[in-house]
Design a protein around this nucleic acid. Structure first.
Lengths: 125, 125
DNA sequence: CACCTCAATATCGTGTTATGATATCATCTA
DNA sequence: TAGATGATATCATAACACGATATTGAGGTG
């Protein structure tokens, strides 16, 4: 069975929505925004970029608001904004979980207990 | 061309590594940890779970440390720990970028400027 | 007009990942 | 032996990523 479509966004998809929240823009400008925002850590090639834009338009996360020659300008919709916000929550949860694990291990170290050994509430090895 | 393998982890992969950082455990226990840690937001079915374990073992992120009947116990390796830490950094970057965008829009609202319209340093619509 | 260049978008091909359903296998219990 | 249980393995299919390549439209320049 396949992955449920758009249940959680990929990093590329997330940044495309982030770009569009700045205001309507075309694909190339979104890609430029992403590269700048991530300081070059994430760069979308044309295939990834236009695949995402097409998918988002089909799903109603974006809509085309202008065509000038070949250039197409897209705007984010309320549905797209909602998906973006949900993704932010998901990312925060991941970071928070990682943080709580980090704290947990530090505490164990402080008390002299062996680091990363206890697996409470789970069946033993 | 395909996605570069393991260049960035999926959410499922990330939590599998997080589980193993608690100490050596089997697949089922890792899945139980994940469900508990995410308060039910993320649940791995057997296919996803064992696919990830097999891939991670092949990549050297985990190694099998015990077999008891059918039960296989895995431990995270240094390479796996490094991948986990890098993923944490990536997630933090995503959240930080989202936060800075949020602040940016609030500032514009405060000054009375139109929210989500300006696209500075990018070509015009 | 014919031609070139450039910017922007579109598509191909293939490997990676997700995942419910299903099957398999070892151990324990009656 | 049989049956239940726990744990792992595999199948089949769809989603996604993404370099490479092609296409398209606008604006020169002669």
């Amino acid at each position: 069975m396949p992955k449920k479509t758009l249940e959680s966004l990929t990093e590329s998809m997330f940044y495309v929505l982030m770009a569009l929240r700045r205001g309507p823009m075309c694909g190339i400008d979104a890609a430029a925004f992403i590269e700048e925002k991530t300081k070059g850590a994430l760069r979308l090639g044309p295939a990834t970029l236009y695949t995402i834009l097409a998918k988002f338009e089909k799903e109603g996360y974006l809509r085309e608001v202008a065509v000038d020659g070949r250039k197409r300008t897209y705007a984010i919709t309320e549905k797209g904004e909602a998906a973006y916000q949900e993704e932010v929550r998901r990312l925060r949860r991941c970071v928070a979980d990682a943080d709580s694990e980090g704290r947990r291990q530090n505490e164990q170290q402080d008390t002299g207990a062996a680091v990363r050994m206890a697996v409470p509430a789970l069946s033993g090895v």
